[in-house]
Amino acid sequence: MYYLQRLKDLREDKDLQQSDIAKLLNTTQPQYSRYETGERELPIRHLVTLADFYGVSADYILGRTNDKKLHIK
């Protein structure tokens, strides 16, 4: 699952800890860790929140494109 590395890379690029992102998503650090490791699927609502937070498309996070830019039509 390519997106798992993207989640980690985006977080680390902003020098954030898993606990910081967990707070953003209103979840716990252990639960967020499960998303990054693939133990749990990332809910769509969290995907949308993370895409907005990082300023990238959901497709970028999911590995469907390598273009980080968010294209709004």
Rank of each mutant, 00 (worst) to 15 (best):
M1E: 05
Y2K: 13
Y2Q: 14
L4N: 03
L4M: 09
L4W: 10
R6S: 11
L7A: 03
K8T: 09
K8V: 11
K8N: 09
D9I: 12
D9W: 01
D9F: 04
L10I: 00
L10E: 08
R11H: 00
R11Y: 00
E12Q: 06
E12Y: 02
E12S: 12
E12L: 11
D13Y: 13
D13A: 14
D13H: 11
D13F: 03
L16V: 01
L16E: 01
L16H: 04
L16R: 07
Q18Y: 01
Q18M: 01
S19Q: 06
I21H: 03
I21Q: 01
I21E: 04
I21P: 05
I21W: 01
A22H: 06
A22R: 03
L25I: 04
L25C: 08
L25S: 03
N26E: 09
T27H: 01
T27M: 05
T27Y: 07
T27L: 00
T28F: 00
T28N: 03
Q29S: 09
P30C: 03
Q31E: 07
Y32N: 02
Y32P: 02
Y32D: 00
S33I: 00
S33C: 09
S33N: 09
S33Q: 02
R34K: 14
Y35Q: 05
Y35F: 04
Y35S: 02
Y35A: 01
E36M: 02
E36H: 07
T37Y: 01
T37C: 04
G38V: 05
G38E: 08
E39T: 10
R40H: 07
R40K: 12
R40P: 00
R40Q: 03
L42A: 05
L42E: 05
L42I: 02
P43Y: 07
P43I: 05
I44V: 11
I44K: 03
R45S: 12
H46Q: 02
H46E: 05
H46S: 10
L47S: 08
V48E: 06
V48M: 03
T49F: 01
T49A: 13
T49V: 10
L50E: 01
A51G: 04
D52N: 09
F53N: 13
F53P: 07
Y54S: 07
G55A: 07
G55S: 11
V56P: 10
V56M: 14
S57T: 12
S57V: 10
A58Q: 09
A58K: 15
A58W: 12
D59E: 15
D59H: 13
D59K: 15
Y60I: 02
Y60H: 06
L62K: 14
L62T: 10
G63P: 15
G63K: 07
T65H: 02
T65V: 09
N66I: 12
D67L: 13
K68T: 10
K68R: 15
K69G: 15
K69H: 15
K69Q: 11
K69V: 13
K69A: 15
H71R: 15
H71G: 13
I72A: 10
I72T: 13
I72Q: 08
K73M: 15
K73C: 09
